[in-house]
């Protein structure tokens, strides 16, 4: 009997017991669809009035619980730094010549219109994040997707030219730093950390929401740059091995 088979055999009774315990707990939850949280009700009633944003989730993410989001952003940044640390340090010895192995004709054909379009979509998702659904994280990922398309459609070299490491590093660290600095500004002005200083504007306008707008944009920048860096690390790995794969396929 293989190790895995034996282990799964052990897991069956344990898993069943665990599932039973979990189910017992879940059955004890308040019925699905019934209102219960005072905490949630407070935001539903007051968030738009207090923060002049129509997206209540954005108000919570970037203001009421903005401290969480700061931690979240740093998790993202740490993930990026960690990936770079792990993948860069072993790659040193291997040859780093950039090749252009991947060219999809469809994408090459699509490229002229597609990339600016995706980029625009990303920016749009970020900038309306506190008015309609969307926001810094979502838009940031889309923006990084645009950079990725450059690679898929055109060339790795062009991708590298468009997203040079120093610039992307600066954007990532800079975006995260702006988030921290907005918090510090609140502190410096005699309030508490992340206290809003900027006029709230008219609800529903792009220039509304005070610090929320700034934090949203900073997050978008940091996430987009961070994901580009992650892609970069993984893609650099990929391009190294492509001849291998091609040889195997033949």
């Amino acid at each position: 009997m293989s190790r895995v088979r034996r282990r799964v055999l052990f897991f069956v009774p344990v898993g069943i017991a665990m599932a039973a315990v979990l189910a017992w707990g879940l059955v004890g939850l308040p019925s699905f669809g019934l209102p219960h949280s005072d905490y949630a009700r407070y935001f539903a009633q007051h968030a738009t009035g207090q923060r002049h944003t129509t997206n209540v989730v954005a108000a919570i993410v970037f203001d009421y619980r903005g401290w969480d989001t700061m931690g979240e952003e740093l998790i993202m940044v740490s993930g990026v730094m960690g990936t770079a640390l792990l993948l860069r340090s072993t790659r040193g010895e291997e040859h780093r010549a950039a090749r252009d192995p991947v060219t999809s004709e469809l994408l090459t054909w699509l490229r002229p219109g597609m990339i600016p379009l995706v980029l625009l979509l990303g920016l749009w998702t970020i900038s309306y994040g506190y008015i309609t659904p969307g926001g810094g994280f979502q838009g940031g990922v889309i923006g990084a997707g645009a950079a990725l398309l450059t690679w898929l459609a055109g060339s790795y070299q062009r991708y590298q030219v468009l997203t040079p490491d120093p610039l992307v590093d600066a954007a990532e660290g800079g975006g995260a730093f702006v988030y921290l600095a907005v918090g510090l500004a609140g502190l410096a002005a005699g309030g508490t950390y992340l206290h809003n200083l900027i006029p709230l504007g008219t609800t529903g306008d792009l220039a509304s929401g005070g610090t929320i707008a700034v934090l949203n944009a900073a997050t978008g920048l940091a996430v987009a740059a961070g994901l580009v860096l992650i892609f970069h690390e993984f893609l650099e790995d990929y391009t190294e091995t492509v001849p291998d794969v091609a040889a195997e396929e033949r």
């Binding site: 905490y39 949630a40 919570i60 993410v61 989001t69």
Partner: peptide, 10 residues
């Protein structure tokens, strides 16, 4: 509930 949505985003 908007709170759980913000938690899920994180």
């Amino acid at each position: 509930d908007p709170v759980v949505q913000s938690l899920t985003l994180t």
